[in-house]
Design a binder for these strands. Sequence first.
DNA 1: TATAATTTTTAGTCTAAGCTAAAAATTAGT
DNA 2: ACTAATTTTTAGCTTAGACTAAAAATTATA
Lengths: 218, 218
Amino acid sequence: MYTLAEENYIKTIFHLQQTINGAVSTNAIADSMDTKASSATDMVQKLADKKVLSYVKYKGAQLTEKGKKIATKIVRKHRLWEVFLVDKLGFHWDEVHEIAEQLEHIHSTELIKRLDSFLGNPTFDPHGDPIPDELGNFIKTEKKLLSQLNKSQFGVCVGVKESSPEYLQYLDKKNISIGTKINVLGKEFFDGSMVIEVGRDQFFVSKKIADNLYVQTA
Amino acid sequence: MYTLAEENYIKTIFHLQQTINGAVSTNAIADSMDTKASSATDMVQKLADKKVLSYVKYKGAQLTEKGKKIATKIVRKHRLWEVFLVDKLGFHWDEVHEIAEQLEHIHSTELIKRLDSFLGNPTFDPHGDPIPDELGNFIKTEKKLLSQLNKSQFGVCVGVKESSPEYLQYLDKKNISIGTKINVLGKEFFDGSMVIEVGRDQFFVSKKIADNLYVQTA
DNA sequence: TATAATTTTTAGTCTAAGCTAAAAATTAGT
DNA sequence: ACTAATTTTTAGCTTAGACTAAAAATTATA
Ligand SMILES: [Mn+2]
Ligand SMILES: [Mn+2]
Ligand SMILES: [Mn+2]
Ligand SMILES: [Mn+2]
């Protein structure tokens, strides 16, 4: 059994590994967790002792198979609870992260098994992120960032990269959610900004907006 | 905001206060929490500083209004989650305590508000214990222990005093659950044991069994 | 009521997890 | 290839919460 702090570190390292491929630095961990590098180093050393990750001084950490399995379970729990909060309790997609951050640490395999089937074995969470199965397998989908599309192309929103309340609320305001079709009417190559069409609305989006929305083409 | 440890102490003291009226001793707290008296003393001193309880050295602790309010919220959460686990996820009443023990510490008033209405604003948990409302008010019901009944009297099971898996599983085996009618066919005054009738079954129960079952008469 | 038994508190350690400041290693700039 | 800047680790403190052993207070007993 792992402590709350250990679980949060493991999950963070797992997520950092997806982006940055290879070993993840203690500084990256600390930044991502709003803590200090020295604290991250301490924890990484402890987790290395427990064989949850491999760690080479000054070179960073990498989860072992054991570590990945632990991380996957936490991610599964987090996303299942998010589905529960949205589908069953009627929360909005921008309100669930904080609560799921707590619920993901409840220890009970039976609970998760039952929750999963109560929810109808969902495969994606409310933000479009895949929910790993009991064995830890993620559904791999080929998706692009909206910012990768060019003029006259279109895509269907399948997820968000950033899921801060601020960003999600912006999307709500623009009526963009999972399943929304987006047409790229124009793209400015100087700053990467775009003019897009959503339903009957046409409006401008900055590169930062377009960089955080996943779409599926074809 | 209170820590996990603080919340567990507060809840325990609240429950001890119901039984033992007046101040509760640090030893009683320690016993009830499977910890040492010295640890209980430390925590009680800390909680006294925070005005959660009043404490007189060698005389014990008593929750303040503030403390009672905190305790009530935790009890409310615990019992609502138990209803969720049984009614929605299909857990058995002897399996939910451990999990609710964790879930009761999730911090989010909005979550509890929504959970409550999702469950249909239940007033009793799966063990027959009353669920306090948002203001902390408990429904007062006059109930007796089965052991208080005499020969030829009967009662309807409305709750359990003890809710260990062992006891609950015993009741299951005898087909006793909330709502079950129990007739007292005989009572031995030497040891308090009884012969009772449940449905078509007639069997012997010890005083210990009868001492932990709440019934409603009339 | 004096002594013995019991309960409760205090003093001193320990571990987990955080922090700051300083030291060491790595990377970058000239 | 050397400094200089940056990153990362170490050393040393802090707090929460637990424990053991000893001291102090309370309660029971003769
Ligand atoms: Mn978390
Ligand atoms: Mn999510
Ligand atoms: Mn608890
Ligand atoms: Mn209960």
